[in-house]
């Protein structure tokens, strides 16, 4: 257990708990950012430099900002006395706890997992090789992702358009 891993993992999990439990939605979004930074640090520790930077750029630079914007646009930042969770919230928490328990026990008790590193970080593909793989082996998924992003862009723009008010009220059934 090295200190870097402990710090990164602890920060990630603590910020995640805060992001899911705080009352003020803006605070939740800011804690979410800390979580994303923590996960990026974990990626760095695992030797995945490119993914780590991409994670920061997309999650912190785009997704967190989007969440913040949506929070302000829907005026849900204010602190109200309303209950935060659905009423039988223990049920949801119980389900999540069961899932975590199942995964953790199966991971800890599994004899199939490799016990030590099979790879030296220096042998990891360089950014250049990664780009070449993206453009050769994975070119079809890459194109599909491009299509998906375009579709999402257009979809979000259409959804965000202010609908024109109907000039005549629709006939009552």
């Amino acid at each position: 257990m090295d200190a870097a891993f402990l710090i990164a993992a602890g920060l990630t999990l603590a910020a995640a708990v805060a992001a899911m439990s705080l009352r003020n939605l803006i605070h939740c979004a800011l804690c979410l950012v800390v979580t994303f930074f923590g996960v990026a640090a974990l990626f760095l520790l695992l030797g995945a430099e490119f993914v780590s930077f991409a994670q920061v750029m997309v999650y912190v630079g785009a997704i967190a900002i989007l969440i913040v914007f949506a929070t302000l646009l829907t005026r849900s930042a204010g602190v109200t006395g309303e209950p935060l969770a659905f009423q039988p919230w223990l049920v949801g928490l119980g389900i999540a706890g069961l899932v975590v328990g199942a995964i953790v026990t199966s991971v800890a008790g599994s004899g199939l997992l490799p016990t030590e590193s099979s790879r030296i970080v220096a042998a990891a593909p360089s950014t250049r090789e990664l780009g070449e793989q993206l453009m050769s082996t994975y070119v079809l998924p890459l194109e599909v992702v491009g299509l998906l992003l375009t579709a999402a862009l257009i979809g979000a723009a259409v959804l965000g358009l202010r609908e024109p008010k109907p000039s005549t009220p629709p006939p009552k059934p």
Partner: peptide
């Protein structure tokens, strides 16, 4: 570019 996007925050 990644650290540049943190300034928005």
């Amino acid at each position: 570019l990644a650290v540049g996007s943190a300034t928005e925050l």
